[in-house]
Nucleic acid binder design. Sequence first.
DNA 1: GGTCCCGATGACAACGTAGTCATAGGGGGG
DNA 2: CCCCCCTATGACTACGTTGTCATCGGGACC
Lengths: 336, 336
Amino acid sequence: MVDVARAAGTSQKTVSRVVNAEPGVRPETIERVQRAIAELGFRRHDGASHLRRGTSTASIGLVLEDLAGPFYAALTAGVERRAREHGYLLLTGSADGDAERAGRLVQAFAARRVDGLLIAPNLVGDEVLTANLPPDVPAVLLDRPSADHGTDEVLSDNTGGIAQAVHHLAERGHRSIAYLGDDERFWTSRQRRDGFLAACAERGLRTEGRVSLGVLTPERIAAAVSGWAAAGVTAVVTGNNRASVALLHHLHERTGPRPAHVGFDELDLADLLDPPLTTVAQDAAGIGSAAVDLLFERLATPTLPPRSVVVPTRLVVRRSSPPPDGASAPPVRNDR
Amino acid sequence: MVDVARAAGTSQKTVSRVVNAEPGVRPETIERVQRAIAELGFRRHDGASHLRRGTSTASIGLVLEDLAGPFYAALTAGVERRAREHGYLLLTGSADGDAERAGRLVQAFAARRVDGLLIAPNLVGDEVLTANLPPDVPAVLLDRPSADHGTDEVLSDNTGGIAQAVHHLAERGHRSIAYLGDDERFWTSRQRRDGFLAACAERGLRTEGRVSLGVLTPERIAAAVSGWAAAGVTAVVTGNNRASVALLHHLHERTGPRPAHVGFDELDLADLLDPPLTTVAQDAAGIGSAAVDLLFERLATPTLPPRSVVVPTRLVVRRSSPPPDGASAPPVRNDR
DNA sequence: GGTCCCGATGACAACGTAGTCATAGGGGGG
DNA sequence: CCCCCCTATGACTACGTTGTCATCGGGACC
């Protein structure tokens, strides 16, 4: 601005006025300053401006588990869209399963003075965040709750979504349903398993020996599926995208009767599979934009109590979940 | 730092020394300062630090077409990983097909004083970027060249990848191959079409009436496919992910003989489709990390001439590209 | 003509940090 | 015992910007 002022034959303060479109500058002065700005290629230094103004940086930080997965990509898109609507910029980073890395990201974002943080890594425990998150930086947890409920959070309706899957299968006549979950270090894996157990209990369905949670190795899946076949299982619910794909691979390479299958979380090509996969679709973009909304509300009113938003899921019935062999779908119950 | 200094009974400058681990501070002083930092919850203001130091902000800006697509998600992951290895933070934004929005993103990133820009939106013309990109901010174009070759660029080997697909089909005995491309406003759509024409010419294959480029409406695809069937087409190459999916949907809802199909760009579930789809896989993450490498090289040596990096593709043969009916695969030619 | 007021502009300080240089205190060598 | 040098520390200033207040000139009004 000093250089521009010299070129325009005015003071640095007047340049500031022109740059910020403040009133009370003569039109011809504005003209001179703008010409000088164009000639010198001047750009305002936003960092210095924020420093002096003491205002926010109009940016938020997003910590993810990984950037490439479709769920996180859709979530990021939802976050970025809503943030941009507010004129905010988005900083992103992925933890890649490393709690220390997540902590460093949180600290780096905080040092950049982001206005708030959105924290989604599923494999990282609370302790790292509470150790790294400065108390004056508002944060929203995504897709996972905080243990002490001190922060806002946005969750998928895991329990309800799994219940949708179980009820759908039960209404089609399945009486022996299994659950295949991902690594139990994922909170969502455990949460959805619990939802599965609850929904089965509500339906009076047995679950003993029908639940498998853990790292998705082909061996574990093969063992689980063959055990289930022996137990008369006719339908499987998979607890996330990766579990769905793992089961599909297993079934793909194997002959014999195919259990009905409902997958939690939508797959891009679900309707092109053979058979097209019935899924419980999560609204990843909706989770992202809801989180941004929570964050802005908290920035406006820091004294709000911690809130928890549950984003509904949607059952997308395709052809992978027919009634079991020999049974036709019973009439739909009317009590729900 | 002033507050910390008061609490520690020292000067602000000594706090700065402790924070930056500068030598020449007595251990007990360090101790006192660190205690005060912990008590007050002090964090250094990175923006002020960068301002005073006059150094870079250790951040780069990434402008994408959209954040949710699998190609862009993988690309972002590659960028973020490499940037983090250098201790850089990543700002992201999507243009969503809007050139003006892309320009605003470029300006916002430049005002934040990012050290460099990575620009990937495929639907946006050069003019917006040249109008918005300050000459002193290094930029790398991704997945699309610049018209005037003034900036570095990283491209997929579109021509070579399409040639891989054509040669693969030709070697299996196909003599009448068609190309289905996405909206021709995408530079990659046109580039891959040209690659298709060149590869067919090299093989002596006719292309008249076998190339369809444009918005992927079901109507256009149906018209193209039925036209091709009349022309004796036995194999189709699709020019990107969306074209592959569109064609798969069309084939899925239609009976009759199924042409062989090779898709440009990998699909997550390609091997679970029926039949599993032969693809030309792009290395999206490799494109991203190569772009970051180019950027850092230019930051180190601003006088480098503009460079163009072509990232190779990889043909993944699956079962959607068998020889045409009645033909067995001829022996593989040895001249290549 | 004097006073008041308003529009336009500039001088100065401050945001939080780090570089430069000065200074105080202490120990060793002459 | 004096001087020198080294260690530890602090005062001051600048980075680029904006808020505050002062100043200057001119026109309107009495």
